[in-house]
Design a protein around this nucleic acid. Structure first.
Lengths: 227, 227
DNA sequence: CTTTTTGTTTGTTACACAGCAACGTTCAGC
DNA sequence: GCTGAACGTTGCTGTGTAACAAACAAAAAG
């Protein structure tokens, strides 16, 4: 059985009574998706909307020239695939599991009714969109004005916020993260990321190994970013 | 008197009857804003939401290092300043009139009631947000993967879409547009934009003079962008 | 008409960063 | 324990583009 109590505390479901929520959850089906496989792809007909229960998802888009860039990560307890909320009937991006994931999936046909019955659900979905809009705008500003070093720092700090986990060595980013992933987030190359991480490791800002990054000096990294 | 008929055809107001719309418009006040002055500023308490009737607005944000970048332009007949739609009580960016502008302003206090009475208004506002989200994501991808030449081309084509006006010489971008503006949109310097426009003028893609850009060969410019 | 301000052009220089290439390291499958 | 694939590191080279600088052009102000 699912942890209804947990879900009931999410802002998206503030308006639901316990009974309503249980009812609503009953209409969903759990979907397990293995690491590196797609929840859905860009352009696909939007048949479901999701709540991520466990794992991390990469939201990926492909540039005209074929390069992929990671628009953002989705963390546990976030809604995603809510194309209907923006009046679209296809998904606007790819959602790829960064680790093994579990999500609740509701048929998209339920959306209009849900929105009608629970106005605050619609509101919170809009709020989610708004926050994403602001996040993405922040990234535009970064990409337009900051140099690579700052952008990579920003990407790491962002991930740390979403997936940071205290360890004795420092704060671990609890997603398997290749240099390529980081570069796909910050619009640079894996080479440059590799170089940066090496130099940061030497100055004691981070510790990194294969698919793993630990931030040992968050303050310095933040300063780097604000300069 | 305002052109109610015109407004009634906007997607945002599809759900309004003629009478309701007139009533709704009566609750707004017209606001005229001179070129280069603010409708509102980032962080300010969101006291109104707007419908732009005439003109163009620059949505501007400031980077940590103090540089301004133009996130996007708002064209006539778009809603803007709808902070409430995303559950915020302050404006998330600056809105600066690029030319003399006229807008309808509703007190933000009307938002909850309006949303309740006209569900489709809320939906269309969300759709507006969603489109903006996708637009901004596109810009992230551009900035991350394309070189300056492509980005500037993309910026011009985007503007052309919003504010293009056929003339005998080509398609005029009907906003007073300095090189600085274009560079603020494409994350480069006015120097580079100047050089690019010069070279494009020589190859017959555009004609430009002070604050004015005419695209004479849209196809070639588009190709440039897609490469 | 003259002066000042604002926008634009163009040359030169410097450097951050991508691209390429080669090598090292870790991991998974047989 | 091998072998191959996936991932990471590092040096070198080339170039796109930012930064500085200086002059020009056009509009606005007086």
């Amino acid at each position: 059985m699912l942890d209804v109590a947990l879900i009931s505390h999410l802002p998206n479901f503030a308006d639901f009574s316990r009974v309503e929520l249980e009812d609503f959850i009953r209409q969903a089906s759990a979907r397990r998706v293995e690491k590196n496989t797609h929840f859905f792809s860009e352009g696909e007909t939007a048949s479901s909307f999701y709540l991520l229960l466990d794992g991390y998802i990469r939201v990926v888009r492909i540039s005209p020239s074929g390069e992929q860039i990671i628009v953002r990560y989705i963390a546990s307890h976030e809604l995603f695939g809510i194309a209907a909320a923006i009046g679209r009937d296809t998904y606007p991006a790819n959602a790829v599991a960064a680790v093994d994931c579990v999500a609740l999936a509701w048929p998209m046909s339920l959306w209009p009714d849900t929105v009608k019955r629970f106005p605050s659900f619609a509101n919170s979905a809009s709020a989610t969109l708004g926050n994403r809009l602001m996040d993405v705008q922040d990234r535009v500003i970064e990409l337009a004005t900051e140099q690579v070093e700052h952008r990579v720092a920003a990407a790491l700090l962002k991930l740390l916020e979403q997936a940071g986990k205290e360890t004795e060595e420092g704060i671990l980013i609890d997603i398997p993260l290749t240099r390529q992933d980081v570069s796909d987030m910050s619009g640079t190359t894996l080479h440059t990321v590799s170089r940066l991480l090496s130099s940061w490791e030497q100055s004691g800002l981070v510790k990194s190994s294969r698919k793993k990054v630990i931030i040992t000096d968050k303050v310095k990294l933040t300063n780097l970013y604000n300069r």
